[in-house]
Design a protein around this nucleic acid. Structure first.
Lengths: 237, 237
DNA sequence: TACGTGAGGATTGTTGACAATCCTAGTAGA
DNA sequence: TCTACTAGGATTGTCAACAATCCTCACGTA
């Protein structure tokens, strides 16, 4: 096939390192607050400090790393208000994605999402407690990707990583797996039916569910929690 | 005041360079498609290539620069579909910001926005044709910042830069300045009245206005334009 | 004329070393 | 006992040189 042609430009080293670091942060292998020593990491990746620093600067601009000059780089630590912020932002992005799906090529989107749903069903039977949450996030990733919006995809990537950080930090893998599958199934059904309003409602309820479970007392509908630090200045740039 | 204490950590060099590059891309000093030669830029900024590369990697992960291995870094060029993508994404982010404002501290948000509006009114009288569009974007920046969401702010930053790129590329500074001020005034009034639904409607109409002006034929309501390249693989990472 | 081939030049990718800065621990003095 | 100060060690920030890769263009051949 013509589409099988490999790009002659392989991935850059900084790209590879950045992705691996993202994974490590995401899974909790690098817990929030961890300091990333350049020398140590460079040795682990078997590269020099140059490319490593480039990779880390990427994560800084994505908001996954926090830079303190002459101190080092640290994995961001999630404060209570961040759970709300993450889910509210995700709700906004995924809502927009859903709208674009409903007003665009709904059919192929449903096909891709059904595939993701199948993986969830498989994961629900997996003894590994992380299997289902991971499949869950892959579903939402597929949702955004199906929108065809490069920018929504880019923005969602960081948010999904942060979501995974929350789950890892809070160790909340409990909750009936069937419910989760059901909620996602309902979304796909509403899409197939072409009922945009219902898709949005279901998606919103889905997010509301998640946040009340992770941060009891917060709600997407009743506004942000008491004190969310605005943090206007951004030293790291 | 205690809040006036300055952080002892000054900005990092990579931060400064990244910001300057963003400005240059935004204003059109570095037009879309431009190749950024490392040696040349390093000489201009009077730094070595190390910090410069770090800064550029940041812009890559923000989506403002495109990296081709062993070829160089290029300013992204906006294709027709990008105008829609940018404005649709902005609509999603700003809608979310507005909702959080309406359900949070509406009063102080209105105060900040009124300030931004005053600047717009001043700019409308400015002979410089760029003054008003710039003030316009600052208003929207203030809107997102007033939401208090760190993540919405981060995502909006890149989108506003891309918006400015569109304006610079299309050279569309024409349009009655009074209309613009009026639209923004209406949004603030609806906020003061506490009418969330109306705020969202006005914001949506505002975005719809902009996109039909910049990309005739596109509409936020009728779904994405025919072919938006999904661009699933991301070589640059 | 059209096509494959191979220097030549220029650009990016990577490395290791050097300079600047900061935290910590230990010490002297009140 | 507590505070101020000073090395010491470790870490980050910066730089210039080297290696690898790619594009261009001239050259020779069918």
């Amino acid at each position: 096939m013509l589409s099988d042609i490999e790009p002659v430009n392989r991935e850059s080293t900084a790209s590879i390192i950045a992705r691996q670091l993202r994974d490590a942060i995401m899974t909790g292998a690098l817990p929030p607050g961890t300091q990333l020593g350049e020398a140590e990491l460079a040795a682990r990746f078997e590269v020099s400090r140059g490319p490593l620093r480039e990779a880390m600067q990427r994560l800084v601009s994505e908001g996954l790393l926090r830079s303190e000059r002459h101190r080092g780089l640290f994995v961001i630590d999630l404060e209570p208000g961040d759970v709300y912020d993450i889910y509210a932002s995700r709700a906004a992005i995924e809502r927009a994605a859903a709208i674009r799906i409903m007003r665009g090529d709904t059919e192929s989107a449903v096909a891709e999402l059904s595939e993701a749903l199948d993986e969830m069903i498989e994961a629900a039977a997996d003894p590994d407690p992380n299997a289902l949450p991971e499949a869950d996030l892959r579903f939402h990733e597929a949702l955004v990707r199906a929108s065809g919006s490069r920018r929504l995809v880019r923005m969602a990537r960081t948010l999904l990583i942060e979501t995974r950080m929350c789950l890892a930090a809070l160790q909340r893998t409990d909750q009936p797996g069937e419910d989760r599958v059901t909620e996602h199934t309902a979304i796909i059904e509403a899409m197939t039916a072409g009922d945009e309003q219902r898709v949005l409602e279901l998606l919103d309820a889905h997010m509301e569910d998640a946040i009340t479970r992770l941060a009891p007392g917060s709600s997407l509908h009743s506004g942000p929690p008491p004190s969310v630090p605005a943090d206007g200045v951004d030293i790291a740039g």
